[in-house]
Design a protein around this nucleic acid. Structure first.
Lengths: 266, 266
DNA sequence: CCCACCGTTTCGGTGAGTGAAACGGCAATC
DNA sequence: GATTGCCGTTTCACTCACCGAAACGGTGGG
């Protein structure tokens, strides 16, 4: 996990705007603070160019200077909070997530499918929840997460094929890497109405997830409970998750203002 | 709330990057979906230019096309979630917010000061909480909110002067618009250790907030409980909020990875 | 002292970006 | 069904914003 120098020597784009945005992209999930030189190396852009663009980005409010470097600034959070797909979904879902949290005191996630990943859109957890490494805005592969399996099991078959074709990477010894086995697991999930994850994404961590449907019964989100493998009794928790997901689905169907189309891979 | 045409005829910037970013800014908190023509009018940029820039933004992933228009897309949420000032704060604070929610079942907010506003960085609420209009990413003036008063009362005196100089706009009949009265109110807050809001931002809504300090005892955030004016007993809730805020302050001081400087107005 | 690397500034050449004009499509209005 | 108005999109010759090699001053450390 500590891959060192992911520099991007190859193809620096030519459009000014694309270059500026590339600079924003350079801030990965981990690196909170980057220097000008870092950014220049990472994007493959010449130093003076980076300097100029950074100036504009700071001026805009998307970046802020620190004693030695640049960091993403609040304006980006501001903008990100306005993204409809996330905002509407979160607003509707939060009460249900709270109920689940209060009932279990475990980690509650709300996820959507984005490309070939599960994207965690909201997370509720407290002191008593088992510490797991998952973040809002975090991504995990579809095939090794409870939420991801929900999207695969309840979504269009083609979706499964694309994921299988892209390759099922191994995350833990228990990750299902054979398409045949995964298909069986998904069939079971479809029949039961919920997906599970037995230490397939992280050792010692299990989860159970249920689908949130839109009006046409396409899975547009998933709610999950995640926690310690020794402590969590998934079959016992499944009904609660399913109930919450169904209630949310019903609420979403009632509200006409939501147009939450799932997005395929680009 | 139905102000019609906030077009921006005046000064279209000349830099390509600035223009592209201007297009993102054009998406206000309310308008989820804008057409090309709208954007052109609102930014004051010629249509072909907007067309080209939108293409690049969509290609980047910051915008997505809809049947008839453009909306902010998930990548912006992704980026926004990486903003350190928000991410670290939220991560540390969430358990405490959960505890408060569970104890009260009211709306719990975590806010930071940004410019001359309180910016709500996290909000926890459930079915039982009184519905109020506040959103994550939402902004309210400092002088009429419990969290804002906390920043003013516990921050540097100069901060108060800047806010007073900018003018205390009236939000409700109870909003304190006289600098002298506000100063008295802030002195009381400083002495008690918490700030209150008696229907000053919204009729029927009251709140109590306590400061979260960094190591040098500068207020870097505020935790608040917000709810119905008839139901909430603020003095009784104040100790809980203060306790949570103090605990969070202590945790933040322990963790050396956080460098959370408050930001003044630009 | 020198070297390596940092952020920053300069400046002439040039091609990426520009935007008026025109196009084809759609819906409401006449 | 012609007209009108506004939509998104395409074209294209001009030109100025952008580029980036080179050079500069500062800083740390060997």
């Amino acid at each position: 996990m500590t891959a060192v120098a992911p520099k991007q020597p190859g193809n620096p784009p030519k459009s000014v705007l694309a270059r500026g945005l590339l600079l924003l992209d350079a801030f990965g999930p981990e690196e909170t603070e980057l220097t000008l030189a870092h950014l220049a190396r990472r994007t493959g852009l010449p130093k003076p160019t980076v300097h100029r663009l950074l100036g504009e980005l700071v001026n805009w409010g998307g970046l802020e200077r620190t004693p030695n470097g640049y960091r993403l600034a609040i304006k980006l959070f501001d903008l990100g909070e306005r993204v409809p797909r996330r905002r509407d979904m979160r607003q509707a879902a939060l009460p249900y997530l709270e109920d689940l949290y209060e009932a279990t005191h475990e980690n509650i996630h709300l996820a959507v499918a984005d490309g070939l990943d599960t994207l965690f859109v909201e997370k509720v957890s407290g002191h008593r929840s088992t510490r797991i490494m998952s973040r809002i805005g975090g991504r995990l592969p579809l095939h090794c997460t409870a939420t991801g399996k929900v999207f695969l099991a309840f979504g269009v078959p083609d979706y499964f094929h694309r994921v299988a074709a892209a390759g099922l990477t191994r995350c833990t010894p228990r990750t299902i890497v054979l398409p045949g086995l995964l298909r069986e697991d998904l069939a079971r999930a479809l029949q039961r109405g919920y997906g599970v994850n037995h230490e397939e994404s992280e050792v010692g961590v299990v989860a159970v997830a249920a689908p949130v449907f839109d009006r046409r019964r396409r899975p547009i989100a998933a709610i999950s409970i995640t926690g310690n493998a020794n402590r969590l009794d998934l079959p016992r928790l499944a009904p609660a998750v399913r109930t919450a997901a169904m209630a949310l689905s019903r609420e979403l169907a009632r509200d006409p203002s939501l147009r939450l189309v799932p997005r395929a891979a680009s």
